[in-house]
């Protein structure tokens, strides 16, 4: 601990001792980021045959971003995140199939609102316990929703899935075509907006306080931060984003299958985030790209070996590469940062 009293006379006060420059630097978009966002544009021209797969990647990336907020930043380990993905998927599906409202953007907003509500209802239960109890409550909530959707045949279609979803043209201009062009542009645009919002939130004082809670939850109340209120807000925001991802899946495939709520999806998205690197937004994006692509390439070869490789990769990451794929970038970033400070 450093003494609180100023040791040299040139310091004006306690505020002057906080150096905000690194935070301001982090808020500025970097050249590499611009390059990264050229990828979806390049993919459009390079793989016109695989737009459906690319749409999947974009949706998975939104879902992973959502998990990154609660797990990577707020530090809540959850194995039931598919609950909100599924709620969003069913909300968007039912809006069209049951109420006949097929406007995509309206569906997106509706799904986000319903998922946020689900997040608000579940958050006190999740935040009550710690450790294993918290993990089990997230699993329990996920499984409860899965079973509920499974049994409520009349509303959800049960194991047969929800059918009869029809989308009106996007903004009244572009209808969803057979080749998935509209779907791809739509999904990538939503991903970009969600990413911008998430990037802003993560760099804001709120986002910093989440990271601080993750590091030391006992100390934050002493600094005047209400831990539960911040975590609840993060949980609800993440639920809404997961709902958006689920709604996108519904709207682009015009179908809701019961596995949107499955335990497997919760485990898979956790894996994707860890693979890419948790606690950084690009980790979620890179994880989604690598995972969905590999799955597509390897699942044709042999599903058994696919599972074996996933298991080995997970064990390998935990034992040897704690920062995931994005951890590879770290040494270069440090090098860049050193250059900048020298200048």
């Amino acid at each position: 601990m450093t003494p609180l009293t100023p040791t040299s006379s040139d310091r004006a006060g306690p505020a002057a001792t906080v150096d905000l420059a690194p935070l301001r630097r982090a808020a500025r978009p970097r050249a590499l980021e611009f390059a990264f966002w050229l990828l979806p544009v390049a993919a459009w021209f390079l793989f016109p045959e695989n737009l459906a797969l690319l749409t999947q990647i974009a949706i998975t990336a939104i879902f992973a971003l959502s998990l990154d907020l609660v797990l990577g930043y707020a530090g809540i380990v959850t194995l039931g995140h598919a609950a909100f993905f599924g709620v969003g998927a069913y909300a968007a599906g039912m809006l069209s199939a049951k109420l006949g409202i097929g406007d995509p953007l309206l569906g997106l907003v509706f799904a986000a609102a319903v998922s946020a509500l689900a997040g608000a209802i579940t958050s006190p239960f999740v935040l009550r316990g710690t450790g294993l109890t918290r993990l089990m409550v997230t699993i329990g909530i996920g499984m409860m929703l899965f079973e509920a959707a499974n049994k409520a045949n009349d509303f959800t279609g049960g194991v047969d899935g929800l059918q009869g979803i029809e989308m009106t043209p996007l903004l009244g201009l572009w209808s969803f075509d057979l080749w998935g062009k509209t779907a791809y542009v739509y999904a990538v645009a939503v991903l970009f907006v969600v990413f911008l919002v998430a990037r802003h939130v993560v760099g804001s004082p709120f986002g910093l306080s989440l990271r601080a809670i993750h590091m030391n939850a006992a100390r934050m109340p002493a600094l005047g931060v209400s831990v539960d209120a911040r975590l609840t807000a993060a949980w609800i925001a993440a639920a809404a984003i997961a709902g958006i991802a689920g709604a996108l899946l519904t709207q682009t495939t015009q179908f809701v299958s019961i596995d949107v709520l499955g335990f497997g999806r919760s485990a898979e998205i956790l894996l994707i985030l860890i693979l890419g690197g948790a606690g950084r937004l690009y980790g979620a994006l890179v994880g989604a790209i690598v995972f969905v692509t590999l799955h597509h390439l390897l699942a044709d070869v042999d599903p058994e070996y696919w599972q074996l490789w996933i298991g080995l990769v997970l064990i390998g990451i935990v034992l040897f590469a704690r920062n995931g794929l994005m951890g590879v970038v770290d040494p270069f970033e440090r090098l860049l940062a050193r250059k900048e400070t020298k200048r």
């Binding site: 797990l71 380990v77 194995l79 450790g131 294993l132 993990l135 485990a267 956790l270 894996l271 860890i274 058994e304 070996y305 599972q307 074996l308 996933i310 298991g311 080995l312 990769v313 997970l314 064990i315 990451i317 935990v318 034992l319 704690r322």
Partner: peptide, 22 residues
């Protein structure tokens, strides 16, 4: 290690075990 690490590691082990059993 952290709880998250243990969760990930043991899930990985489950996948490997299932693949070997199959």
């Amino acid at each position: 290690a952290s709880q998250l690490d243990q969760v990930l590691f043991s899930i990985g082990l489950v996948f490997v075990a299932m693949a070997i059993a199959r």
